[in-house]
Amino acid sequence: MNIFRLLGDLSHLASIFILLHKIRTTKSCAGISFRSQALYVLVYLTRYLDLLWGPWLLYNTVMKLFFIGSSVYVLYLMKFDYKPSHDMGLDNFKVEYLIGGSFVMALLFNLAFTFDEVMWSFSLWLESVAILPQLFLLQRTGEAETITTHYIFALGAYRALYIPNWLYRWVMEGRVEFIAVFAGIIQTIVYADFFYVYFTKVIQGQKFELPA
């Protein structure tokens, strides 16, 4: 555990609390992509298969259970409690291509051609693009509530912070997980435009608005 990994994980945790806070305080899931949220459930379920057989490190296990539990809970909130506020008409990104493409990448790139390793690789490729339906929804609406942009930023910062973590581990421990690193870099590139607008507008106290 190094400072970058810890900050990345804390950023991931923060993103979930921000999202739950947004839904509860505004009593609405407007502006949140159900499709992205569903992809995250798939990401965590396929990545944390090792919860079934261990090893169960306390920190990792608690976090894994939290990420699975909270993502399922958000889906539940969106599907039932706050269903009328869901922008279903605009939230129509074709996730089939993301799932299919990630599966092909997982078949091509994996540490071993076993079910759990292919699923682990699949989860990383899928996570790298899972925010696309959310960013697409943002593009369609052209603006976003500030709290929603904080959520997206914290979620993106998690993987961005993992990049210096991987550099640190490569130098200090001689350890590199190439699939995670490549997928993490792709994920950060996917977020690049969003980060740019976030830093140039939201941080300066302006509303998140995309050019028409």
């Binding site: 090893p55 990792n60 540490l111 682990w120 350890r175 997980e177 995670a180």
Partner: peptide
């Protein structure tokens, strides 16, 4: 080494 086979990140 064996540890390297375990995915220890989130």
């Amino acid at each position: 080494d064996e540890l390297a086979d375990v995915h220890d990140e989130l």
